[in-house]
């Protein structure tokens, strides 16, 4: 079949035919780009379209939220380029944000004084923006039917330095089996927050547990062993609620009974002390660039969104009042850097 075709059509006539067909085809189906563009995108962007680059590093806990905001922001401003890396809160401050290499840092805890000093050495003034609330979740194996609720003291016994080795060391009726503990590595903001909230001081965390940067390792570990325990951000529990069992927390400082880690409990402030604020930090100087300022404004505008914060990621959205406070601080910062010029 092909042989006939190949031999039947001469080279010249084929070329001529193809060129002719191509030319007529092209003439019929092209349209001026100016016409096409104006007809297509007429949302009218005062001051010209935004463009530029925003580099973001930091916490793996905040990473999914920032990723969500990025996608929504780029929908409206496709010419801005935003990169997001997950480096851990401390890693982000130390090697990316305070060195001036990235303008925004995701953080699952507040900035430390040492990090503030490092930033100051490089003339970077971090502006804290609270973006969501997380319910840090302690999980155990699905078959661990003896435990549904833990007190803060018990958690401290288990996770503190020289922590308990066996379940029965904590409560006598619990099985006489060794703990298998999985938790985030010490570069993680989740680790820092948990240590601070449960043990009450920095770095007072036992070191003989399986530390990992990857929350899935914690899920796999806890799922695989009956006598294991682990903790991570609520978003991760949200995606794995079949695989592991969340434990309620009893805080002696509030009179509440055992409180389950749920978005409602965290939003209403009942899930203490493990509900925690999540932040992004912006280099104040960078807010002078219009696209950075707009991205932060967009972020703050959407921190109350049930759809983006709770449904898409699994964190607790801020209340309107909290949002108004963040917006005020952000606008003040933007005003201060833009009026300097």
């Amino acid at each position: 079949m092909t042989r006939e075709m190949a031999c039947g059509v001469s080279r010249r006539s084929f070329l001529a035919g193809a060129a002719g067909a191509g030319a007529t085809g092209l003439a019929g189906c092209i349209k001026s780009r100016a016409e096409y563009d104006s007809g297509d995108s007429g949302d009218g962007n005062a001051g010209g379209p935004l463009s530029g680059e925003i580099g973001i590093a930091g916490s793996s806990t905040v990473y999914p939220l920032t990723r969500t905001m990025r996608v929504e922001f780029l929908d409206r401003h496709p010419d801005v380029r935003i990169s997001v890396q997950s480096t851990g809160t401390g890693g982000g401050f130390g090697s990316y944000f305070c060195t001036g290499d990235r303008v925004i840092n995701n953080a699952s805890r507040g900035i430390k004084d040492s990090e503030r000093e490092q930033c100051a050495e490089n003339d970077i003034e971090p502006l804290e923006i609270r973006v969501a609330t997380d319910a840090l979740t302690v999980v155990v194996n699905n078959e661990a039917d003896w435990v549904d609720c833990l007190t803060v003291d018990e958690l401290a016994q288990i996770w503190g330095p020289d922590g308990a080795d066996r379940w029965s060391d904590v409560r006598e009726e619990w099985p006489d089996e060794e703990f298998e503990l999985y938790g985030p590595a010490s570069t993680s903001g989740t680790f820092d927050y948990f240590t601070e909230a449960i043990m009450g001081e920095e770095d007072a965390h036992r070191s003989d547990y399986s530390a990992t940067e990857d929350d899935n390792t914690i899920v796999t570990g806890v799922k695989g062993s009956k006598y294991s325990m682990g903790y991570f951000g609520f978003a991760h529990y949200n995606g794995n609620s079949e695989a592991v069992k969340a434990v309620s927390i009893e805080d002696p400082e509030t009179d509440a009974e055992c409180v389950e880690p749920t978005l409602e409990n965290a939003a209403e402030g009942r899930y203490t002390p493990l509900s925690r604020p999540l932040f992004i930090y912006v280099a104040k100087g960078a807010l002078a660039q219009r696209h950075v300022a707009e991205f932060c404004r967009f972020y703050v505008r959407n921190v109350t969104s049930e759809e983006l914060v709770a449904d898409a990621v699994g964190y607790v959205p801020l209340t309107e009042r909290q949002q108004a406070f963040q917006r005020g601080r952000l606008e003040a910062a933007i005003d201060s850097v833009t009026s300097d010029e």
Partner: peptide
């Protein structure tokens, strides 16, 4: 792991293995 198509070779870059790695760690 997440970024746009770079305009120039001096811009922030991404690469396939990084993107795959970050997906593999997702919640």
């Amino acid at each position: 792991a997440i970024g746009g198509v770079p305009d120039s070779l001096l811009d922030q870059g991404t690469a396939m293995p990084l993107q795959v790695f970050s997906w593999a760690l997702d919640a």
